[in-house]
Simulated assay, not measured.
Amino acid sequence: MSKDLSQDVMYLPQKTNPSLVKQADLFADLPLKLIEDFQQEFQLSEWHKGDYINADILTQRFFVVIDGSVEMKQSNPETGREATLDMLYAGDCFDLIVLFDDKPHPVIISPLTTVKLLSVKLATMRHWLWTYPEFNKQFMPYLAKKMREKEQQASSLVLHDVTTRLSRIILEHINKIKTYTGTLAQEHQHHLVNGLTDETLARMTGSVRQVINKQLQHWKKAGIIDKKRNQLIIKDLEALEAAAKYTEKLANAPLVKT
């Protein structure tokens, strides 16, 4: 049975240290003295796949992922259909919306793996942003990157078909986790994607599981991917890039050669 982590593990006084704080890109390049000061305010938490995370915690604490992956989604209570709002990996932080407007955000927080996180009181995070120019300078480019990702996500849903959207999502996932399998000589060709079920890919793509499965099976027959349970092994990266139809250098996306 899943448990409400917002009532226990999140508030355990687990210690952090400067090396943990530096694992988050948002803090990595700050002066060491500032990192040491910030470190005293952080708590270290661990979530597990299947754990229930009460979204109310986002109005109290600001989280940074240092290991693992988390899916942020919303659902329609009338139809039961779900849509992925964001996929968070090591270095990502959430929830930026609550950080700025201080209002509840009705999302479903779903750990896809065991996740390690740093968290700090929301009020403290705001204080750091308004008080320390060095930190604000680090934070603004990350905020712009996330805004650009949301713009691309929205435009892709309107302008591109499922095949293009799915290929882009897989490529973005590869680029973020930077995980490879196979020999060094074939590193540019073989990429391993773990933990994304057909249902998850459907939510991320704005489609349904049956359509996603059909496309994946088509790519498998064409030798572009190999599919084993929740694993995708990318065997022909160039073919996937061609399906993505990139015409310009996008955040977290390769450029198709012309």
Results as ranks from 00 to 15, higher is better:
E149F: 09
Y132V: 06
L184N: 13
A185S: 11
H188R: 10
T131R: 15
H188F: 15
F94E: 02
R81D: 11
Q74R: 07
G80P: 00
Y142K: 15
T124C: 05
P77L: 12
S156C: 03
F94V: 07
V107P: 02
F135I: 07
I97V: 11
K178H: 11
E149S: 07
E172Q: 05
T131F: 09
L117D: 01
L117Y: 12
K103Q: 08
L85I: 08
E134M: 14
P77S: 07
K176D: 04
H191D: 00
D92S: 06
R148N: 10
P104S: 15
G80V: 02
E82R: 12
Q74T: 09
P141Q: 13
K103F: 08
H191R: 11
E134P: 04
N76I: 13
V98S: 08
I109G: 01
K176E: 04
E149W: 15
T164L: 01
H127N: 14
R165Y: 04
D102V: 13
L184C: 15
Y142G: 04
A90H: 01
L129Q: 06
K178C: 10
F100L: 11
E187W: 13
P141K: 13
D95T: 05
E134Q: 11
I170M: 05
K178A: 05
Y132D: 09
D101G: 07
L99T: 06
E82V: 14
M147T: 13
E78Q: 06
L117A: 13
Q152V: 08
L143M: 15
D161I: 04
